[in-house]
Computed example of a mutant assay.
Amino acid sequence: MPYFVYILASRRHGTLYVGVTNDVVRRTAEHKAKEARGFTKRYGVDRLVWWLEFGQVDEAIAFEKKLKRWRREWKINLIERENPDWSDLYPALAAP
């Protein structure tokens, strides 16, 4: 089963959220529907701007913890390397 570390943003260079899940499409949909109470709902963070797949849950969790400790500038650079326009990647992932 794959696991995913993902970054959501409120907008380009906006508020960032780092998470881990076994279903990035479902989890992002929950954030978009404001079903995930707490930080992302409060700050309107629901744009999937970056994700990475892992084969093992322990690898994903370890990377999520590492990424959460990164400086904001490093996270922005990571996003912009693969998604310079900060496009919402959810529609392409959710499409059948």
Score class of each variant (00 low, 15 high):
Ala36Glu: 11
Val5Leu: 00
Arg72Leu: 11
Glu73Gln: 15
Leu16Tyr: 07
Val57Tyr: 04
Leu67Pro: 04
Leu78Arg: 14
Glu35Asn: 15
Asp88Ala: 06
Ala29Asn: 06
Leu48His: 01
Arg81Ile: 05
Leu78Ser: 09
Pro84Asn: 15
Asp23Phe: 05
Tyr6Asn: 01
Arg12Ile: 05
Leu93Thr: 03
Asn77Trp: 06
Gln56Ala: 14
Ala33Glu: 07
Arg26Asn: 07
Lys68Tyr: 07
Ala9His: 06
Glu30Leu: 08
Leu67Val: 11
Ser10Arg: 06
Trp70Arg: 12
Arg37Ser: 12
Pro84Gly: 12
Lys65Glu: 13
Phe4Gly: 00
Val18Tyr: 00
Asn77Lys: 08
Lys32Phe: 04
Tyr3Ser: 03
Gly14His: 02
Trp86Pro: 05
Gln56His: 10
Val25Thr: 08
Tyr17His: 12
Lys75Ser: 08
Lys34Val: 04
Ala95His: 10
Ile76Trp: 13
Arg27Leu: 01
Ala95Asn: 10
Leu8Arg: 01
Gly19Gln: 00
Ala29Val: 02
Ala60Leu: 07
Asn83Val: 14
Trp86Glu: 10
Glu80Ser: 07
Arg12Leu: 02
Ala95Tyr: 10
Arg72Phe: 12
Pro96Cys: 01
Phe4Glu: 00
Arg11Cys: 12
Ala94Thr: 08
Ser10Val: 07
Ile76Thr: 12
Ala29Glu: 14
Asp88Trp: 04
Asp23Thr: 06
